[in-house]
Design a protein around this nucleic acid. Structure first.
Length: 458
DNA sequence: AAGGCTGTCAACCGCTGCGTT
DNA sequence: AAACGCAGCGGTTGACAGCCT
């Protein structure tokens, strides 16, 4: 849809109008925590306010935004000033709709980064994170409505080719994420895992598997509004598949148990150091009850399921989701957010061998695994012989399973920091050919809109 | 013509990381 | 080490305009 007015033509409300609006705003949205001081305006900026802010920034530069209000008399908080400047008044802003090239770039970047709008904006000169975010959200809606792939094949292919030039290392995770993205309407059902590994022409456009898969892939299934994931998945097969298709996963878990190494961040690192914290978001699973002390039951229940996945890639994806979910959710004694939903999981244990129906609520609502898991609690494998057997049955042919614990993409479990929050990267080395992405390239949210997936998931 | 729907945009909110005290 | 403040980020919401029926 084309807007009648360009950004620059957009009619700002006049001062009177804005004032009226802001008064309404203030009375309705006044924060009780607001500090004493002048009543700050909210709502649309007036041209006069813009002029004041612009003049101030041109004169003093971008420094302490909270000072702006004091110095200029603007009745806007520092945050509001900063936002206004960054998104509208900056001289280097490019106005107007995105060009086709920019759109393609956004799609490509999103396939690599996920919802890292600011980072994407840095790659799009003159564009703001807000613009990109709005564009993407609109795109998501559109794709959802039309059941079209979020990542068009040509874009993915392009990204694939470029990445092959950019990196000499074939990223296992990228391949894997590619696999997952095939589920995004782009999946080639003829592809096998072997092909996946061997096929250098496969699309690495959606790299950074660990974060992708673990934080978001579960939602791919769990958030499906029309079908319960568990209605379709043979969990035993899923777990088995995980051994075949995701040796590193099992190896990682193995490492956790055997060598004190694990993917404790829920992320893997390549040779570059991991920087910054990592929070894993997990699917929202809604059960009728729970056993607060036995998440492992869940894995057994899954393993007992008896349906089939139609294609290997979906199984692969599910396997990852499954394994990760188990990995996290079976950890007893999780603190924080995990405890609250724990009772819901009780039904799982009491409903063993029954098919689970998985809720479709958004991942943001009280997921059992929406938690920061304490590393000190990661002895879950010891408590679940079934899973222990599973993870130890990792294919010996897989590179990572042959790797020593030190080679595994795992962080030190002895750390007291939360499992999925990493302050200190400890993973630096991988089996050759299985390099995992740098966190900064990780698409933490790339699959955050899986509920917008085409019919293959619906 | 009117109302509903959709797309676009701007802005706010809460959270997090980081630097400073 | 803890508290605090600031900057930045991502999610969400509301307003508005255009399209469709």
């Amino acid at each position: 849809m084309t807007r009648a007015k360009s950004e620059s033509d957009r009619v700002m409300p006049g001062p009177d109008q804005a004032d009226l609006a802001s008064h309404d705003d203030d009375s309705a949205r006044e924060s009780p925590r607001r500090r004493a001081g002048p009543q700050l305006k909210k709502g649309p900026w007036t041209p006069a306010e813009d002029a004041i802010l612009e003049a101030y920034v041109k004169k003093h530069g971008v420094q302490n935004w909270n000072v702006v209000q004091k110095d200029t008399g603007l009745l806007r908080c520092g945050k509001s000033c900063r936002l206004r400047w960054a998104n509208h008044l900056r001289p280097d802003l490019k106005k107007g709709t995105f060009t086709k090239e920019e759109e393609n770039l956004i799609i490509k970047l999103h396939s690599k980064m996920g919802n890292k709008w600011a980072r994407m904006a840095a790659r799009l000169p003159g564009r703001t994170d807000n613009e990109i975010k709005n564009y993407w959200n609109t795109r998501i809606k559109k794709c959802q409505r039309t059941s079209t792939p979020i990542y068009p094949a040509e874009i993915c292919l392009q990204a694939s080719n470029e990445e092959q030039h950019e990196s000499a290392d074939f990223s296992f995770s990228e391949k894997l994420a590619n696999d997952l993205l095939h589920g995004n309407g782009l999946y080639d059902p003829s592809s096998t895992w072997g092909d996946f590994i061997d096929d250098q022409e496969a699309l690495p456009y959606a790299p950074q598997l660990p974060d992708v898969s673990f934080s978001n892939l579960p939602g791919l299934y769990f958030e499906s509004k029309n079908h319960g994931f568990m209605d379709q998945v043979n969990q035993a097969e899923v777990l088995k598949e995980s051994e075949i298709s995701f040796p590193w996963l099992n190896a990682a878990i193995n490492g956790t148990f055997d060598g004190g190494h694990a993917f404790s961040n829920g992320n893997f690192s390549n040779s570059r150091p991991m920087t910054g914290p990592w929070k894993m978001e997990l699917p929202s699973l809604q059960f009728a009850g729970s056993d607060p002390n036995n998440w492992s039951t869940y894995s057994r229940t899954w393993a007992a399921q008896g349906a089939n996945f139609a294609d290997p890639c979906m199984r692969s994806s599910a396997a990852m989701a499954s394994a990760k979910f188990e990995h996290m959710c079976m950890i007893p004694g999780n603190s924080g957010q995990l405890e609250e939903p724990l009772p819901e999981a009780h039904a799982v244990s009491s409903a063993e061998n029954q098919q689970l129906s998985v809720g479709s609520s958004s991942a943001s609502t009280g997921s059992p695994c929406d938690a920061m898991v304490e590393t000190s609690e990661l002895h879950f494998l010891e408590r679940d012989p079934n899973l222990y057997a599973l993870v130890n049955s990792c294919s010996p042919a897989s590179p990572l399973c042959q790797a020593s614990p030190d080679e595994l993409p795992c962080s030190d479990f002895s750390s007291a920091s939360p499992v999925f929050v990493s302050d200190e990267p400890t993973i630096t080395q991988y089996e050759k050919g299985f390099l995992l992405p740098h966190p900064e390239d990780s698409r933490a949210d790339a699959f955050s809109h899986w509920n917008a997936m085409p019919p293959i998931f619906q």
